[in-house]
Design a protein around this nucleic acid. Structure first.
Length: 480
RNA sequence: GGCGGCAUAGCCAAGUGGUAAGGCAGCGGUCUGCAAAACCGCUAUUCACCAGUUCGAAUCUGGUUGCCGCCUCCA
């Protein structure tokens, strides 16, 4: 099946055909590093991480660029507030970004450029825009003139005339049009500044992505992504800048991810309900968070609630339990060399349909159920044929996990870590549990069911759930 | 004011004109000393509402209602 992608430019699903066969060049807008990352950043980064992983799995040679905006008014404000210099602020939050994203098992992009390291490219771009008559100077500032670009608004589907009606845009009398945006901003004393033909200053926000994407991906490339909110004005402005210089199509496919709501509410500063990744990770396993984020289609809004995360956690446990069961019962070791089977094919079909990870996860659970069923039926007699099917499905599950960025741990380790964590939280000694289980075993051998059940109830009160199996009693911890 | 999106079971959610994936919760069953886990079965004649197109619509068109987003820094 051919990959189809919803293109914001045009507003419909299109067959994905990269400019150069076999090669994908993509650019995703990264964070402005002035604060910790919240769960909304996580969604965007995870979604594009999965897209990049999937494209690679399909055999494309992927060049993935994700930038850091490391100079910006908000960074300057933060620096003043903390009494630090801007560079230190940016570095601090880049470190935090990596901490969060590494924890979430996000792969590094191919190139992760910073705005401040591309000032020359930015200056050249601004000069060209002035030369070509798309930009104008007001003292030390340079503005882009949106009226000069006749296709302005083609991405977000708005027209300059319509927007002016109820525009809530700051009125700057000096600008020719309220939607003109700054390319180069003159600096006040004490602010970070670079020399330019227009005096000391710093780049405007939109220009950096334009300059850096051109630097690494060329004038036209395949995919440009980011959160839905970036569609206007950021990406609209990027198109204007790029295409007015290159006179070529800037980007073939625009991909925008939806927002994360918190308990049915928009995440916003005024509501004070920003959920930081590091706080979420205190409570939930990173793979739980990924499974949750990928369980809705990337363009739909997703609602962060404890219930939703608990369900994701239960689902993840279920998959890991199946992996552990396979290893125990038929001794299959992960084998990535094994050819992909039917489950991978179904998953891949789902992903081919505009990266429908939600449908893909449904297929993952389907697969889990079918293996459990297989192993239930032939409990004592695992035939070579069943072994073969189980191995194939097992390999497919791991392959799917590799795209979603989950199932990265050994099942045994996954459950042990969980146990250790919860036991510590509740300050329970696992020795005590083992002792109690031994005592219960003796009671069971004597068919003293009353005592055995009493011990089990005691353990249940400690959130320890017993499983009596043929090989012996095992226990799992209920984390709530 | 302009632009866009969404509405599918108790909850979450996929659904690409051909007869409603998957998950959670619930109920019944298999297994078990009893449980747990796993599996099986049941839980939407119906997809906000009203028209229309079609042999056929959750899917397309028009309208109504209700939510939401963007247009201002924002993933």
């Amino acid at each position: 099946m051919a990959l189809r992608v919803f293109n914001t430019l045009g507003g419909k699903k299109e067959r994905f055909e990269p400019l150069k066969p076999g090669r994908v060049r993509m650019y995703v807008c990264g964070p402005t590093v002035y604060d910790n990352c919240h769960i909304g950043h996580a969604r965007s980064v995870v979604v594009f991480d999965v897209i990049a992983r999937y494209l690679k799995a399909k055999g494309y040679d992927v060049t993935y660029v994700r930038n850091f905006t490391d100079i910006d008014d908000k960074i300057i404000d933060k620096a003043n507030q903390l009494g630090m210099d801007c560079k230190a602020v940016a570095e601090k939050y880049i470190t935090e970004f990596y901490k969060d994203m590494d924890a979430l098992n996000v792969e590094r992009a191919t190139i992760e450029p910073k705005a401040t390291e591309h000032i020359n490219q930015i200056l050249k771009f601004v000069e060209k825009l002035i030369q070509k008559g798309f930009a104008y100077r007001i003292n030390g500032d340079v503005y882009y003139s949106v009226e000069k670009f006749k296709e302005y608004g083609k991405l977000s589907g708005r027209r300059l005339e319509d927007m002016e009606a109820g525009a809530r845009v700051d009125i700057d009398e000096r600008k020719r049009n309220p939607f003109d945006f700054v390319l180069w901003k003159s600096s006040k004393p004490g602010e970070p500044a670079w020399e330019s033909p227009w005096g000391m200053g710093r780049p405007g926000w939109h220009i950096e992505c334009t300059a850096m994407s051109k630097e690494y991906l060329g004038e036209t490339f395949d995919i440009h992504g980011g959160g839905k909110d970036l569609c206007f004005p950021h990406h609209e402005n990027e198109i204007a800048q790029s295409e007015s210089v290159s006179e070529k199509l800037f980007v073939k496919y625009w991909i925008h991810n939806g927002f994360v709501n918190i308990n049915h509410e928009k995440m916003s500063k005024s509501l004070g309900n920003f959920l930081m990744i590091k706080d979420v990770l205190k409570k939930y396993h990173p793979e739980t968070v990924r499974l949750f984020l990928l369980s809705n289609h990337y363009r739909s809004p997703i609602d962060f609630t404890d219930q939703a995360l608990d369900e994701a956690r239960i689902g993840l446990d279920k998959i890991y339990a199946l992996l552990e069961r396979i290893e125990n019962e038929i001794g299959v070791k992960p084998d990535k060399a094994l050819e992909s089977g039917e489950c991978w094919q179904r998953f891949s079909d789902a992903m081919d349909d505009d990266f429908n990870s939600a449908r893909g996860i449904g297929i993952l659970f389907d697969t889990v159920r079918s293996i459990n069923r297989l192993l239930d039926q032939k409990k004592n007699d695992v035939s070579p044929e069943i072994k073969k099917i189980a191995r194939s499905h097992h390999a497919d599950i791991l392959r799917i996990g590799g795209i979603l960025g989950i199932l990265n741990e050994q099942p045994k380790v996954y459950f042990e870590k969980k146990q250790t964590r919860v036991l510590e939280q509740k300050s329970i000694d696992s020795e005590v549990i083992d002792q109690m289980i031994k005592e219960r075993d003796r009671a069971r051998k004597d068919k003293n069911w009353k005592k055995a059940d009493q011990i089990r109830n005691q353990l249940a009160d400690m959130n320890i759930i017993l499983e009596d199996r043929a090989e012996g009693t095992t226990w799992k911890i209920k984390d709530t």
